[in-house]
Amino acid sequence: MYSEKVMEAFANPKNVGEIENPDGVGRVGNASCGDIMEIQLRIENDIITDAKFRTFGCAAAIATSSTATEMVKGMTVDEALKLTNAKVVECLGGLPAQKIHCSVLAEEAIKKAIEDYKSKKAR
């Protein structure tokens, strides 16, 4: 059911952990649904220089967290806001239909982290 890329990202996920004093944090999902994703970003001059995640969820949730954080590193915040879940799925070589929501969570977590960064910056 899972592609080799998903299993590889699950077995050896990148960017697990936290950033000290992150510039943006996005936490989405809830435990009763079986998925919580938290993405933390380091943003310098509107460029994402580092991204980390912590995820409670299935293998697909962990794999999409890893891939999405890899993808946004080096992007400007505007570019990262345009990252769609479909791109994350494509990068993972596809996801089973019932796991697409994991990629949606990853997209939402990144958007939320950037919103957090923007609201902090506006203050």
Binding site: F10, G34, F56, G57, C58, A59, A61
Partner: peptide, 14 residues
């Protein structure tokens, strides 16, 4: 506690 079953299943699978 704190983790999801399917991810445990695939950890064992690996």
């Amino acid at each position: 506690e704190y983790i999801e079953g399917e991810s445990i299943l695939f950890s064992l699978d690996l």
